[in-house]
Design a protein around this nucleic acid. Sequence first.
RNA 1: GGACAGUUGGGAGAGCGGUUGAAUCUACUACCUUGGAAAGGUAGCGUAGGGUAACCUACCGGGGGUUCGAAUCCCCCACUGUCCA
Length: 415
Amino acid sequence: MIDLKLLQKDFDGMSAKLSRKKVDISLIADLKNKNDALKIAKTEFETLQALQNTMSKEFGIYKKEGKDVSELKAKVDANKINIATALEKQREAQEELEALVMAVPNIPDDNVPDGTDENDNVEIKKVLTPKEFSFTPKEHWELAEQNGWIDFERGVKLATSRFSVSFGMGAKLERALINFMLNFNSKRGFAEVSVPAIVNRNALKGTGQLPKFEDDLYKIDGQELFLIPTAEVPVTNLFADEILEESQLPIKMTAYTPCFRKEAGAAGRDTRGMIRQHQFHKVELVALSKPETSDEVFDEMVACASDILTALELPHRLVILCTGDLGFSAARTVDIEVWLPGQNTYREISSISNTRDFQARRAKIRFKDGKQNTMVHTLNGSALAVGRTLVAIMENCQNEDGSITIPKVLEPYLN
RNA sequence: GGACAGUUGGGAGAGCGGUUGAAUCUACUACCUUGGAAAGGUAGCGUAGGGUAACCUACCGGGGGUUCGAAUCCCCCACUGUCCA
């Protein structure tokens, strides 16, 4: 959630920044008007309420002293009607404002490049050089089937399209990768947590998936519960509604969870293979930090994810997302794209975001900043998407006969 | 699935329908005391919004109701605990 106080103070500055993210100026103006309207409605209600409170107290005193209350009661009854209308007005204003503000995305950092889509993202650096193949490298689905690692048809049989089943070394590698990544992240100071894969509406509001993106989520029928699209949701919300001690920060966590996405709007994209599945494994990094150190923590997270790929000997590049490609909650995002020789392109394998205080304000995660309470900064990033890592290993480590040479760092995890 | 009990401030734990945002204990912070500490004393100590300020408003699991007035009474829901099937 954006800071409404700041909007009031610096409307022009804020709307200029938000318009970089394609937010309609008229919507921001509307937001400010609604906020002002709410303030007026609130003041009106509170004045009436204060009067009512005073009279009610008098009423009690009158009764005690045995005085006649009929005149006072008439006044109080009359005021009661006014209060009811004022309250109703305030409630309406509140609801209108909330509906609007919950749908406004985060403000991009000043140094995020302008752009309309992923083509305007800016490469920061490349790590490791893709190796030359003396043959035409195959795509991962071909390798996966040839090695008997992944069965796409049986996934469809059990569920529906975009589900798959891993067998043998494919299944083992998934497990190995999860363990390897969790250990790697732990060594970098991210404490391991294990969280529910089902969360309530409130948690999803806290991190920004709701109310705007309900169509992307799997909802449990008849219950206000959803399958998580990412561990970011439960892990970030661990500290919702809490006021942390300054000494606790930064809190750095890592968690493995399955992730579930409807992939609404992705029809026809990546239908083949396991790039885009409805259910996938992911190891996530989440951090809460003081505002002044969140950039530092962000860099640590990017380095952590990138170093995992380096350890796996997978060539990749870092890309900073432009304003048009930035997610709803993010102020700044760096994507890590891994090289896929079969597809002859770099594909996203990790996305690391600093949401500043956007999620913290929604989820009410604060810390004691001297005498006052201040919103923390929340950060999240994949380290890494497991299925896509497996894809990258298959394509990068393939031999001419279709066999795959497993990266050395994984050996301890496969015995 | 059924019955009963509970949900109050960081923790523990009071609270008759009226001046209670809430006793008390504890924790915490500052100061006094001390050579230093302990003990003791004094003061402060929930969150959010509004106001230059005095101060005002809201919040006692969530939602609704009764009442001039609700932490307190009624209804619904959620959660926790105990017992039963």
